[in-house]
Structure formats: C-alpha cells, structure tokens
Design a binder for these strands. Structure first.
Lengths: 132, 132
DNA sequence: ATCCTTGCAAATGATTTGCAAGAGT
DNA sequence: ACTCTTGCAAATCATTTGCAAGGAT
C-alpha cells in the first residue's frame, strides 16, 4: 500500500483512498476492465463512484502509472505499468496472462530506422488449456 | 470490384452496393475507423447510413472478411483480412502502416504448448518520420 | 417469391463533464 | 489555507435495435 503512495506522489497525484484502492484491485487481478474494477471495488467501497474510476484511469494513464490493453472484440483491460510483455488472451473465457518477451527477438529491428519506437504491444489470441 | 462480390458471396452475404462501397473504401485507406469510413463514404453515397456501416462491420468480422485493430487511446481501426502482420502506429498523426512479420521469429514459441493460438496482433507505437 | 438488407428513429450503453462538498498536502 | 479530488446528476457520444420499405438471389 505504501508503495503506491510513493508512486502517486512521484507522479504529482494526491494519494487518495480511491486511487490506492484502484491500484490495489488492479494489481491483484493483473488485468481488469473498468466494469470489473467497479464491481470489485463496490464490495469494499460502495461509495466509490464509476465517474471517479474513469477520471482516475485517464489521469493515471497520462502519468504513466497505468496502461491500457485494447482487446479485439471486447472492452479494454488495464494494468499497472511494467516492462513490455506479451499478453496471451483466451477468446473463450477472456482470461489474460502475461509472458516475457523472448530476449532473442531483436525488437528494435521490428520497425525501420525512420520510426522512433516508444512501446509495443503483442497480443496472442486463442484458447487456453481449461477451455479447450 | 468484382473481386469483393465473390468474397461476399463466398461468405454467405449478399453483394449490396453498401457492402461493396465499405470494402472499397477500406481497401483504399488500408486501415480506417468507423467514423472515417462514414465520412469517406458520405461524399459519394450520402444516403448510406451509419447504422448500416455498424451492422455490416459486425457481420463482416463474423464472416472473417474484415478484422478489427484495437488501438491504445483511440477507437479501433478496421482492415480487410489478410496475413498476420505488424502495425506501426504513429501516436502523433495516427497513421498506421503495415510491416511483414520477420520470418526468423518462431511465433509458435511465443505461447506455450498448452495454449492453442489462433491469431496474433503486434502493434508498435511511436513517432513516424514526418512527425519527428 | 422469398429472405436479407437498408435507413430511419428510438433505445441503450459507455464515457465525460460541471459543480458543490470534502479530503490531502 | 489552498488546491485537488470526489460523487452525484446531467450531458454527450458511441453503438445497437425494431421495423417497414426496398433490393438481391
């Protein structure tokens, strides 16, 4: 918890209960949609409003504390910012898992020299073991 | 034009002027949003409604004629279905370019054996030459 | 002739905004 | 004390739906 207070302050955001709650729930679930966040949070903080979640997600994305994961055929997921990694997405159950990017990949060679790369996003869609 | 008639029929969809127009505009621009489609089409087919575009995009995605490209921080783009490839996206101007996937990549090794991969999506975000 | 598709308008759903009260620094 | 943030309700924007008329096979 204290960890997130530091992150928020370092980003110029006040450490409110609402923000800390959002970050904790997001961290626990790994990847979560806005609706998911709201439902989870509602159980422990029934007064925390949807509007507050929206406002804060927008803000924390701007401050690079949170990252959006846009998904084919569904709402975006959100996660805490960390190193670039692959998302393995089950089309059946919607589960999202992380995987490290194979270091043998020369990611810099992906784009050409004329393009200044800032970040990448790799999503693999398919069916997980449980859903097969 | 006749080419798209075949594709539609093969997918079990009637070849209407509206659908052919959508496919042509989409092909011309490479990648386009719903709004973009509507504005482009409006110039030549002012009566073609937004609702028709929505209905058809949904249908053609189901039939695998069209593919959604979800984008960080903006609406999804759509393109004609073709081989998997990389999208190079300029965060400044929104331009989307295609690039072949480096064949030296062992894409099958990206996921583990337990995951049945159906398709992948690789987006590189940064700044294009013109916007630098 | 039949069934599918269109276009309109209305309905729904998601996200954003304005503002007064409350909380963090 | 000051400024930022919250929560509510209303406003806006995006997407979907129902239905009667028109078009494709």
């Amino acid at each position: 918890m204290n960890y997130y207070i530091e992150i928020l302050k370092a980003s110029g955001l006040k450490a409110t209960v609402q923000r800390l709650t959002i970050l904790e729930v997001m961290s626990d679930s790994g990847h979560i949609t806005i609706d998911g966040l709201y439902q989870q949070i509602n159980q422990t903080h029934p007064t925390l409003s949807l509007a507050t979640i929206y406002k804060n997600i927008v803000m924390m994305i701007e401050k690079k504390v949170v990252v959006e994961i846009p998904i084919v055929g569904s709402k975006s997921y959100y996660e805490l910012k960390k190193q670039d990694h692959i998302h393995i997405i089950c089309k059946e159950c919607g589960d999202v898992r992380d995987k490290e990017i194979d270091p043998s990949w020369h990611t810099s060679s992906l784009a050409d020299d004329t393009f200044s790369l800032s970040y990448m996003q790799i999503n693999l869609y398919g069916t997980c073991l449980e859903c097969q």
